[in-house]
C-alpha cells in the first residue's frame, strides 16, 4: 500500500472540509501513514468468495407506514442555529459548485 503524502493530506482535508494548517500537514501525514500501515494487514487475508458484511443484523424490509408524525416548530428547528434570518438558516455565500 502506498504511503500517505503531504498532498494526499491536502486532498483528504479538502474532501472532508477540514482546514488543516500547512504546518500540520506533515504531522497528519506521518500519523495516518503509521495507522494505515497497521490496518493494511487486512490485505493479508484471503477473502476470495467472502461476502462483505455491511449490516450486523440480517433483517430486511423494515418500513414505516406513510403516516405523518410530529414535526418541530420553526423556532425549535432554528433554536440551535448559529445564524438565522426570516425563519431560515443563514449561511455564508455559497460558491457555485453543485
Amino acid at each position: 500500500m502506498s504511503a500517505i503524502s503531504r498532498d494526499d493530506v491536502v486532498h483528504l482535508a479538502h474532501l472532508a472540509r477540514i482546514d488543516i494548517p500547512s504546518d500540520q500537514l506533515d504531522h497528519y501525514a506521518s500519523q495516518l501513514d503509521a495507522i494505515l500501515e497497521a490496518v493494511a494487514t487486512v490485505s493479508a487475508v484471503d477473502t476470495d468468495n467472502v461476502v462483505p458484511m455491511s449490516h450486523p443484523v440480517p433483517s430486511t424490509n423494515v418500513f414505516r407506514e406513510d403516516v405523518p408524525g410530529q414535526s418541530l416548530t420553526a423556532n425549535e428547528a432554528l433554536a440551535g442555529a448559529p445564524a438565522v434570518e426570516d425563519d431560515r438558516f443563514r449561511v455564508p455565500r455559497i460558491l457555485d459548485e453543485e
Binding site: V67, Q70, S71, A74, F89
Partner: peptide, 15 residues
C-alpha cells in the same frame, strides 16, 4: 414523518 405538502412556511416541515 414530516409532511411533503408544497408551499408551507419555511422550516415547519422539519424534524
Amino acid at each position: 414523518g414530516c409532511s411533503t405538502e408544497f408551499g408551507a412556511e419555511p422550516n415547519t416541515h422539519v424534524c
